[in-house]
Amino acid sequence: RLGFCQHHDDEVLHLYCDTCSVPICRECTMGRHGGHSFIYLQE
């Protein structure tokens, strides 16, 4: 089961930031992890 983002309370962690080695949400890709390399996580 996927968890929720600690920075965006209502967002599920659907992605993994390869650059930072952390799970991220959709909102994170447009903010603090913008321009980073990421992949989609599987449930």
Rank of each mutant, 00 (worst) to 15 (best):
C17W: 00
D18E: 15
C17I: 00
V12N: 06
D10H: 13
D18G: 10
I24Y: 02
C25L: 02
I39F: 08
G3Y: 06
I39Y: 14
I24P: 02
H8D: 03
G35D: 13
S37M: 12
E27P: 05
Y16G: 03
V12Y: 06
G3H: 05
Q6V: 04
G34P: 05
D9C: 10
R26P: 08
M30S: 13
H7A: 08
T29C: 09
G35Y: 03
H8R: 04
M30V: 13
G31R: 09
D10M: 05
H33W: 01
G35K: 04
R26A: 11
E27T: 12
P23H: 14
I24Q: 02
E27F: 04
T19K: 09
D10T: 10
Y40W: 09
R32E: 15
Q6R: 07
E27V: 08
G34R: 12
V12M: 07
L41T: 10
D18P: 05
H33I: 01
C20H: 00
L2G: 13
C28L: 02
F38E: 04
C20D: 02
M30P: 04
V12I: 10
G35W: 03
Y16A: 03
S37N: 10
S21D: 05
G31V: 07
H14W: 03
L15N: 10
C17Q: 00
F38L: 09
S37E: 05
V22A: 13
R1D: 12
L2K: 09
C28R: 01
V22K: 09
Q6F: 08
S37A: 13
Y16V: 08
D9W: 07
Y16N: 06
R32Q: 15
S21N: 06
E27S: 12
Y40S: 13
F38D: 05
P23K: 15
I39W: 09
D9H: 15
V12T: 12
R1K: 15
H14C: 06
T19R: 12
T19I: 07
C17M: 01
P23I: 02
D10F: 05
T19V: 07
E11Y: 07
E11H: 12
C5Y: 00
V12E: 14
Q42D: 14
Q42F: 08
H14E: 13
G3I: 06
H36L: 00
D9F: 12
R26E: 06
E11M: 15
L2W: 06
L41H: 02
R32P: 13
T29K: 13
E11W: 09
G34N: 08
G31D: 08
G31Q: 15
R26F: 13
H33C: 13
C25E: 02
R32I: 10
L15R: 11
C28T: 02
M30N: 14
I24C: 08
G3A: 03
R1G: 14
G31K: 13
G3W: 03
G35E: 11
L41I: 05
G3L: 06
H33R: 01
D9A: 14
Y16S: 03
H36W: 00
R26Q: 15
H33S: 01
V22S: 11
L15I: 13
L2T: 05
R32H: 12
F4P: 04
R32Y: 10
H7G: 05
L2N: 10
H36F: 00
I39P: 06
Q6M: 06
H36N: 01
G3R: 04
Q6A: 09
E43C: 03
C28N: 04
T29A: 12
Y40N: 14
T19Y: 09
Y40E: 15
F4A: 04
E11N: 05
L41V: 09
R1C: 12
E11Q: 12
H14G: 09
C25S: 01
V12S: 07
Y16D: 03
D10C: 14
R1S: 11
V22H: 15
L13P: 05
H7N: 06
D10R: 13
R1V: 07
F38S: 09
D10Y: 07
V22F: 10
E43A: 11
I24L: 04
F4T: 08
F4G: 04
L41D: 14
R26V: 11
C17A: 01
D18R: 10
H36P: 01
L13D: 04
F4V: 05
P23G: 10
P23N: 04
L13A: 04
I39Q: 15
L2A: 06
H7V: 06
E27Q: 15
I39A: 11
L15E: 04
R1T: 15
L15M: 11
Q42K: 15
D10S: 11
Y16H: 13
Y16Q: 14
C28I: 03
R26C: 07
H7W: 06
H7F: 12
H8M: 07
H8N: 04
S21F: 07
S37D: 12
L2R: 04
I39L: 10
E11R: 05
Q42G: 13
V22N: 03
M30G: 15
S37Q: 14
E27K: 11
E27N: 10
C25K: 02
I24K: 02
C17Y: 00
D9L: 10
I39V: 14
R32G: 12
V22E: 15
I24M: 06
D9P: 13
D18S: 10
R26K: 13
C25W: 00
D10V: 06
D18N: 07
G3C: 06
L2M: 14
D10N: 13
I39C: 14
H36E: 02
F4E: 02
C20S: 01
G34D: 08
F38A: 14
T29N: 11
C5F: 00
V22Q: 15
H33L: 00
Y40M: 15
F4S: 05
Y16W: 06
L41W: 09
F4M: 09
E43R: 08
Q42H: 10
L41E: 09
H33Y: 02
R26H: 10
T19E: 08
L2V: 05
G31S: 11
C25Y: 02
Q6I: 11
H36T: 00
E27Y: 06
T19G: 03
G31E: 10
L2F: 14
G31I: 05
